Simulated assay, not measured.
Amino acid sequence: MADTVVRRVDLGYFIRPAAETGTGHPRVEPTLGYLIEHELGTVLVDTGMGSHPEVDAWYHPRRIPLATALKASGAKIDDVGYLVNCHLHFDHCGGNPLLAGRPVFTQRTELASARTTQDYTLPPLIDHPGARYEELDGETEILPGVVILPTPGHTAGHQSVLVARSDGTVIVAGQSHDNASLFTGDVLSQRAGVGHYPAWLHRILALDPRQVVFAHDNAVWTPGSSQVSAP
């Protein structure tokens, strides 16, 4: 079996206002998806930002259309056979309607939240024409060596994707953490046995991942000295 390839997809950026950063200053954050090119099919993790006048006025997003973003990563919409959203907030499932008919793997609790919680997301992105959900209740292997793992925290139904390769596991961690530095902090807390860190972190670190990548950070976490390095 050929090694599965993981490619980053640049879907644009938004400006998180000072009211949300905790620093008193706005912060520009990338919106990133990931192509998982498996010999049995291509999986896309996250599809970019949905549009709504209030969303646009608050976050001032710069969107890269999904077809354009995929082309820059060497793919096209027709190549995508499977879809995973780390969660269903507007900035992770904005391109889902363009992929109608593909299986969308999501935790059952996440889909329920998106459908029933006020202001959780943009409803037209969830039950659009042709939406096809594969509802999961926990860890699931969707292709050989491609495993969805619940990583709750940012939302109750947040999930990450584990990709097994011959040179080590790559974790597409979505928004399990806002950035690689916060992930590093939790790794160090887990190693030291102090502080608070998510219970699922043990599962990820037991895989001795080669890389962990994120939805809103261009940095990549690498093991060993817990360095954060540019891709």
Rank of each mutant, 00 (worst) to 15 (best):
G48N: 04
G33H: 05
V43W: 09
R27Q: 14
G48T: 01
I15Q: 06
G41V: 07
L44I: 13
Y13H: 10
D10W: 06
V6C: 13
L11S: 00
T21M: 08
A19P: 03
D46E: 14
E20M: 12
F14I: 00
F14V: 00
R8E: 13
V6Y: 04
G41I: 01
T31Q: 05
I15H: 09
L11D: 00
T47G: 05
V9W: 00
R16S: 11
G12W: 00
T23I: 12
E20K: 10
I36V: 15
A19K: 15
M49W: 00
P30Q: 03
R7N: 07
G24N: 12
D46Y: 02
G22C: 05
L40C: 10
D46S: 11
R27Y: 09
D46C: 04
E20C: 03
P30V: 01
T31G: 04
G24K: 10
D10C: 08
Y13T: 05
G12L: 00
F14S: 00
P30H: 00
I36P: 06
G41D: 10
Y34M: 11
L40H: 12
E37R: 15
H38A: 11
E39D: 14
D10G: 07
L11N: 02
R16L: 12
G12C: 01
I36E: 02
M49R: 00
Y13N: 12
Y34A: 09
H25V: 09
G48V: 01
R7G: 04
L35W: 07
T47Q: 04
P26R: 10
A18E: 11
T23G: 08
L32S: 09
M49T: 02
D46I: 08
V28Q: 14
I36Q: 03
G33L: 06
A18Q: 10
V45G: 03
T31F: 01
V6D: 08
D10R: 13
V43K: 15
T47F: 03
A19N: 14
G24C: 10
L32T: 04
P17R: 02
P17D: 04
R27L: 13
V28L: 10
R7K: 15
Y34N: 11
E29S: 12
P17S: 02
L35A: 10
R7W: 03
I15L: 13
L35C: 13
F14Q: 00
V9H: 03
G22W: 08
R7L: 11
R27F: 06
P26S: 11
R16T: 09
R16I: 01
T42Q: 12
Y34S: 08
